[in-house]
Simulated assay, not measured.
Amino acid sequence: MVSGDVVGRISKGAGTPGTLPDFAGLAWRMQRDADAQVPWDVLTVSSTARVVLRPTRSWAAAEYSTLMPLGYRGGVYWLRARLVTPLSGDGLSVDAVGDGLAAGTVAFEVQQARGGGPFTTLATLSFDRALCGDEPECDQPFDPTVRSGAEVTLLPHWLTSLRRAAYRNSREGRGAE
């Protein structure tokens, strides 16, 4: 088993207020390996059938998918995640995530599947505190099109190019570039 520091973001995609349904988002940044200078960003969103965005009514009901497969050493892989820590409250409230972090850890099980095969457990992500935004880890927006695992690529390549441009335009629009 390998463990290491992970910085994550749990968010509502459209930013609906309070407990209203939304697209639930889970992003995390980790080191590729002990020697890597470039981290690996993974972005997931509530979905169904691996590739279809799906709004959800609660964090626990969401199945998070990368929406795009990952290419690795000639294989095609999918990643998905599921919340394993019960959160209090009803609906999709960001406050419930904060309360969960205040009470301990908020954990997600990450699974992988090769091609159309079944999913198997790959890792557990455990978040133990909320960052206030002043930490250096908070300065860089998540972008899996420029920060990915060693030998890992987002597929298909043409969609990766479109996604890279969208992320770049979003950062420029927010003044984060």
Results as ranks from 00 to 15, higher is better:
Met1Thr: 11
Gly8His: 07
Arg9Ile: 11
Lys12Asp: 09
Lys12Cys: 03
Ala14Gln: 00
Gly15Ile: 12
Thr16Val: 01
Thr16Phe: 07
Gly18Leu: 06
Gly18Arg: 12
Trp28Val: 02
Arg29Glu: 15
Asp33Gln: 15
Asp35Ser: 13
Gln37Lys: 14
Gln37Val: 12
Pro39Ser: 15
Trp40Val: 01
Asp41Tyr: 11
Asp41His: 10
Ser47Tyr: 04
Ser47Phe: 02
Ser47Ile: 05
Ala49Ser: 14
Arg50Phe: 11
Arg50Val: 05
Val51Trp: 09
Val52Lys: 07
Arg54Pro: 03
Thr56Cys: 11
Arg57Glu: 12
Ala61His: 12
Glu63Ile: 14
Tyr64Trp: 08
Thr66Val: 09
Thr66Leu: 07
Met68Asn: 03
Gly71Ile: 03
Tyr72Thr: 02
Tyr72Gln: 13
Gly75Thr: 06
Trp78Ser: 13
Val84Arg: 09
Val84Ala: 10
Thr85Ser: 15
Gly89His: 14
Asp90Thr: 15
Gly91Met: 13
Gly91Trp: 02
Leu92His: 04
Leu92Tyr: 00
Leu92Glu: 13
Asp95Glu: 15
Ala96Asp: 13
Ala96Asn: 07
Val97Arg: 00
Asp99His: 08
Gly100Glu: 01
Ala102Arg: 12
Ala103Cys: 11
Gly104Met: 06
Thr105Arg: 09
Val106Gln: 07
Ala107Ile: 06
Gln111Glu: 12
Ala113Tyr: 04
Thr120Ala: 12
Thr121Ala: 01
Leu122Val: 10
Leu122Arg: 04
Leu125Arg: 13
Ser126Lys: 09
Phe127Trp: 14
Ala130Trp: 01
Leu131Arg: 02
Gly133Glu: 02
Asp134Gly: 05
Asp134Tyr: 06
Asp134Phe: 07
Glu135Tyr: 02
Glu135Lys: 00
Cys138Pro: 06
Pro141His: 00
Pro141Ser: 05
Asp143His: 01
Val146Gln: 02
Gly149Leu: 07
Val152Cys: 14
Leu154Trp: 13
Leu155Trp: 00
Pro156Glu: 15
His157Gly: 03
Ser161Met: 10
Leu162His: 10
Leu162Cys: 11
Ser170His: 03
Ser170Ile: 09
Arg174Phe: 13
Ala176Tyr: 14
